[in-house]
Design a binder for these strands. Structure first.
Lengths: 132, 132
DNA sequence: CCTTGACCTTACCTTCACTGGAAGGTCTAT
DNA sequence: ATAGACCTTCCAGTGAAGGTAAGGTCAAGG
């Protein structure tokens, strides 16, 4: 499968996929013409990375997970530990996002959204009683 | 007020404050000795930016928000639109995060966590079918 | 007056994770 | 045979800072 198809399958820009190869995350075969040739396992990896990245995990964290994929002799205990620590990260991110959402949607709700300059969102961001 | 104090007042690293000056966000006076001299209005702006950034707005969005804030004739509708689009972003991230959490905690639960290399988490990453 | 140490300055380099563009090779359909 | 959609590599730039170096300034203590 060429990079264009891999891009669609993994929901990642071709540019990004090449970058991931450059930094050693996913190394596809090459066809006779020099084109990258992605197999199902590559697509699966790319999808996993895409999902992890979109959740705010760093490339380095993705690399840890990829390393687990490449080392089939690792004790499943270690894998479980890493997965659990990622779960804790996810929970932390969830809480941050929820708090951000609460604040923002409070503000959006209070904002009348008209032509008038009066705006609770800006008032909040600016802090209540600071002079212009 | 020197940059160190401004840093404390605005809850932003001095380095970041200088960067904000470089990109034209906040331009303090200079004292005779060349030190930056921040007034209340500058601190106010810095706090505004700090708060916007912590709510997930990009620098460019902060710039828009500040322009709206400084524009006495602004429409609160415009501010609301920006905030709502940010909220949509947050919701999308939340959903992805929740789905990732479900996947990972499913896997952690299924993982026996012993010395054996056999590991359901890796099997999932590899795209194997895991019998329930 | 001198030194120490905290604070400030600019200038430049590095980071992370891409993203864009140029210049050119390949494939497929008409 | 040619168009245009794909692919290749290489080089540069982005946002939003963080790090480090080399040096200027200031207040306090000896």
């Amino acid at each position: 499968m060429n990079i264009g198809t891999a891009s669609i399958e993994s929901d990642l820009p071709a540019k990004t996929i090449r970058y991931y190869e450059e930094i050693g995350l996913v190394s596809p075969d090459r066809a006779m013409n020099g084109y990258r040739d992605y197999g199902d396992a590559d697509i699966h990896k790319l999808r996993f990375i895409q999902r992890s990245r979109s959740l705010g995990f760093s490339i380095d964290e993705c690399r840890q997970l990829m390393a687990l994929y490449n080392d089939r002799t690792r004790a499943s205990r270690d894998v479980k530990a890493i997965a659990k620590s990622k779960l804790a990260d996810i929970d932390r991110k969830l809480n941050e996002l929820i708090s951000m959402k609460r604040t923002l949607s409070d503000l959006v709700e209070k904002c009348h959204g008209t032509d008038r300059p009066d705006c609770p969102i800006l008032d909040d961001i600016a802090g209540k009683n600071i002079p212009n």
